[in-house]
Design a binder for these strands. Structure first.
Length: 346
DNA sequence: AAGTCGTGGGA
DNA sequence: TTCCCAAGACT
């Protein structure tokens, strides 16, 4: 990309977007774009769900949330447990806790209306630099500089930035600002992200189909696939633990609500040991005839692998969740795997 | 300011 | 199987 090309490249990108924007439940279609503004609640909700999460994974969650809670005021009035259960399986559960906090601020102090400026949006729980800029641009037409992983990659390639991530971040933000137009900033941001998701992909970018390939320094140098550069990742350790599945005669299940902070914070789970470097000592939640299941559960989190031995027993006692109040879909995935494993032993 | 925090799909 | 990683935020 050369100085002066920004306007031309931006126009080519928008033209491509008008042709081939992907259809998503939270987007206003091209036919209505001239007359209809996106619902800020929908934009915010989708952007929070999309943090570090693929479009394919988000779609059904977005539909269920908006069907169940059509407005931010409805969401603000929801029970915590219902929101956490609806979020179960999507991951990064702090997002759900902050989502609810944010909804309650907006529905309360702000009378149900989101602030329109990126600087104000960023003060709300769960809204960082990216999400604030994205909501301001898409919902409120502010020419905010929207920088996510896609934009970083596209910009690094357009300017052939060799600086490794995350050191290159400020430089990439500055360059992203150069191609951000005053008009249609929301469509521009979504165009950059669509481009990164479908053409300017991490591996095997399809430069031949790229609407801005004529301006791309990395393509000219034949190094598009190598950018952005990044430091090698640390190896993931393996942790070990025990999980206890107790079922009573009525089909009730022994579950516990995990602490608000930390891994799987605020979610339901089976009682168990800590997860450490070695197989821990047994620590059953109640006295029963525990049987170890033949297959352990394996699950990988962001920064460690987990192997869980699953202990199963039929037992009676206090604190069981009644059969009709328990849905496996309300559990985070690792706990749903434990439940699935237990089914084989029942 | 590095570490923490999920998951499912693709290569 | 294993690795990579996706529309990041929080501490």
């Amino acid at each position: 990309m050369r100085d002066g090309d920004e306007t031309t490249a931006g126009a080519a990108l928008l033209a491509w977007y008008d042709r081939s924007a992907r259809v998503m439940p939270w987007r206003v279609g091209p036919e209505a774009r001239a007359t209809e503004r996106p619902d800020p609640y929908h934009v915010w909700l989708s952007e929070v769900m999309l943090q570090q999460t693929t479009v394919a994974a988000v779609r059904d969650y977005f539909r269920r949330f908006t069907e169940r809670w059509p407005t931010v005021t409805d969401l603000a009035a929801a029970e915590d447990a219902d929101v956490m259960a609806e979020w179960a399986g999507l991951g990064y559960y702090a997002r759900a806790r902050n989502l609810l906090k944010c909804a309650r601020v907006v529905a309360g102090a702000r009378g149900g209306k989101f602030p329109e400026a990126a600087a104000e949006l960023q003060k709300l729980p769960g809204i960082g630099p990216y999400t604030a800029a994205a909501v301001a641009a898409i919902a409120f037409d502010e020419p905010a500089v929207v920088v996510d992983g896609n934009v970083e990659r596209v910009v690094a390639r357009l300017w052939a930035v060799q600086t490794p991530m995350p050191i290159a971040k400020p430089e990439l933000v500055e360059k992203a600002g150069r191609i951000t137009p005053q008009a249609r900033p929301g469509d521009h941001a979504q165009a950059m992200m669509d481009l990164g998701a479908t053409i300017c992909t991490p591996r095997n970018p399809v430069c031949a189909l790229c609407p801005v390939n004529a301006f791309c320094a990395a393509k000219a140098q034949g190094i598009a696939a190598e950018l952005p550069r990044k430091a090698p990742k640390a190896e993931k350790p393996t942790r070990f633990g025990l999980a206890y599945v107790a079922v009573n005669a009525a089909g009730g299940v022994l579950l516990e609500r995990r602490p608000e902070k930390g891994l799987l914070g605020g979610m339901l789970g089976f009682p168990g040991t800590e997860w450490g470097a070695d197989t821990p000592e047994p620590r059953p939640p109640l006295v029963a005839d525990w049987v170890e299941l033949p297959h352990e559960v394996r699950h990988t989190f962001t920064h460690f692998h987990l192997r869980l031995k699953v202990m199963l027993a039929r037992a009676e006692g206090e604190g069981f969740t009644p059969r009709e109040a328990f849905a496996p879909a309300d559990l985070p995935t690792v706990m749903r795997k434990v439940w699935d494993a237990a089914q084989a032993g029942l």
